[in-house]
């Protein structure tokens, strides 16, 4: 799976577009497109959706959801846990019900919609650093919750 930036560049070239043309199509600057492609700054989820539509591909082609889940959510699972997806889903919903609205909303935006912290921060009027802080604390709570639920 290519990283997001590499995927954007590849899809753009396949579509025979320049960075300028892609920028125009998305109503952003060419510099921003360049930053996306070089990985200096990730595109937000809205932009990923637009590009997926523009290039007629699924979001998965542009965004590696597996990586987010593996890197961020997998460490929350107790080692050696052997439960089915259904049980895990129920536990996850039970955990979400125990959270405050704001923590829950941030969690859902990140792991259901796979939005970047900067996009979540922009939506809720908080800094992306604070979003990462909330996510870190929530993951810690999730780890504790799952440990209590399954072990």
């Amino acid at each position: 799976m290519l990283k997001t930036g590499q995927a954007i560049a590849a899809l753009r070239r396949n579509a025979d577009m320049t960075q300028e043309q892609l920028a125009s199509a998305l109503f952003v600057s060419r510099d921003l497109v360049s930053k996306w492609e070089t990985g200096k700054s990730p595109p937000n989820y809205q932009m990923i959706l637009k590009m997926a539509k523009l290039f007629s591909v699924g979001v998965e082609a542009l965004f590696d959801r597996d990586r987010v889940l593996t890197e961020e959510l997998s460490p929350c699972l107790p080692p050696g846990l052997t439960v089915g997806a259904e049980e895990l889903k129920e536990a996850l919903n039970g955990f979400l019900s125990s959270l405050s609205l704001r923590d829950r909303a941030v969690f859902v935006r990140r792991y259901y919609f796979f939005e970047e912290p900067c996009a979540i921060g922009a939506a809720y009027g908080i800094s992306d650093g604070y979003v990462r802080t909330v996510l870190m604390r929530t993951r810690k709570k999730l780890k504790k919750y799952l440990k209590g639920a399954f072990l």
Partner: peptide, 19 residues
């Protein structure tokens, strides 16, 4: 990650709308 993906895909609709 497939299992995780299935689990997060099953997040309650009310929480999704709420976010």
């Amino acid at each position: 990650s497939r299992m995780l993906l299935l689990a997060v895909a099953g997040i309650d609709e009310s929480y999704v709308r709420e976010s």
